[in-house]
Amino acid sequence: MSFINYSSREINCKLVYYGPGLGGKTTNLQFIYAKTSPEAKGKMISLATETERTLFFDFLPLSLGEIRGFKTRFHLYTVPGQVFYDASRKLILKGVDGVVFVADSQIERMEANIESLDNLRQNLIEQGYDLDKLPFVMQYNKRDLPNIASVAELHEALNPTNVIEFEARATTGVGVFETLKAIAKAVLTELRRGSGG
């Protein structure tokens, strides 16, 4: 849930990167961390297993600048993608303001994408949210790999509501900041809309 502090003049929002295991959620955050100036970012935290699989979450605090004298701070989280960490995923969705779904474009991961998207929708319902009413951006990652589904196929399977979508190669950063900007913008726009502005 966004938090507006009229005393320290800050707007805080929570973004969650969701998607199947090994799809590139952590890589998105690592690229953002690597390419952001030191004054705009805090420390990146990864609660990972010894084999670098996300165990609980990754966390990256980012400052995007000021709006009307208020600092905008975005807290970026990833969820663990592996199926059996569902309880952890539910916890991380609490208080979410916007979601990025990082889909794995490889044909053999199509089923995992669909399963993860269903899981996102279901877990949001349990937290009292409706994915169709939440700021939501779709990212088709790993576009550089050889065995990938076409964007049209991914769109048909994963994006029937036509939310804004991006092709990405998170390892080299293609599409990463475009995705971040789109979700941050959607969250701020929704915040304003929710306030009646």
């Binding site: 507006i4 600048g65 709006i67 009307r68 900007k181 929710g194 306030s195 009646g196 502005g197």
Partner: peptide, 16 residues
């Protein structure tokens, strides 16, 4: 007036 409904599209665009 809340800070939120003072925000314009131009303010949001300027951030990015």
């Amino acid at each position: 007036p809340s800070i939120l409904n003072e925000i314009t599209d131009a303010d949001i665009d300027k951030l990015f």
